[in-house]
């Protein structure tokens, strides 16, 4: 998986199931640990799908609130991360559909920005990045978000899960409630369309 390895996947499974059980019984401290472990994967998914910091923060909060309310219905046979990302994906898909219904123009949806024209900074380490690499990273980020914004909400989710979470077709199908063949054809088509767009962009 590219990028930062998120805590959720590398968290100790025993600890995680302990936190889940405690949280299911109303322990907010345990739930807070789950939020801490999974906030970055949920936020990243929301940011990639919605394209700005404010909406991504709100979607992350909503995801965790929904998870808390429905925690008792969580099936422990399923990975917690998939369950959580499923809630986040569906919330973001709904939100994008509502956004489309309000006839928001694509220009307003300029992604990779936080609504103020500022691109989200991503620094892996605490090193101070040099200006050239910051500019290059910004451009790359904007390009990625511009490409993602051209996709339908579901395709956006599928691409994000494939590239940032290294999910297999089967895992994506489970998260998005699709068949494996539907995921495959969506991903293939999205990749081809975006590849053409990228070439034109360069």
């Amino acid at each position: 998986m590219p990028g930062i390895e998120y805590v959720g996947r590398s968290a100790d499974v025993t600890d995680e199931s302990k936190w889940i059980t405690l949280a299911q019984n109303g322990d907010q401290t345990a739930f807070s640990r789950l939020v801490g472990a999974y906030q970055t994967p949920v936020y990243n998914l929301a940011y990639r799908m919605l394209g700005n910091k404010a909406d991504a923060e709100d979607a992350t909060q909503e995801t965790f609130l929904r998870a808390y309310v429905h925690l008792r219905s969580y099936d422990s046979q399923r990975p917690f991360s998939s369950w959580l990302l499923s809630i986040a994906s569906h919330y973001c898909i709904d939100r994008l559909r509502r956004r489309r219904m309000t006839w928001l123009s694509l220009e307003d949806e300029i992604v990779a920005s936080d609504g103020t024209g500022e691109v989200t900074e991503i620094y892996l380490n605490n090193d101070v990045p040099n200006p050239e690499s910051v500019i290059a990273q910004r451009e790359q980020e904007m390009q990625i978000q511009r490409l993602l914004a051209a996709l339908s909400p579901t395709d956006r989710a599928a691409m994000t899960l494939r590239y940032w979470y290294d999910y297999s077709y089967e895992e994506i199908a489970e998260v998005l409630n699709l068949t494996v063949s539907a995921v495959k054809s969506r991903l293939h088509r999205a990749r081809r369309d975006l590849a053409h767009m990228l070439e034109e962009d360069m």
Partner: peptide
């Protein structure tokens, strides 16, 4: 090559 965007540090507090 795209990296994961880290959640802002205050997000957990907001959720709680």
């Amino acid at each position: 090559s795209a990296q994961m965007v880290p959640a802002p540090p205050y997000l957990r507090v907001q959720v709680m």
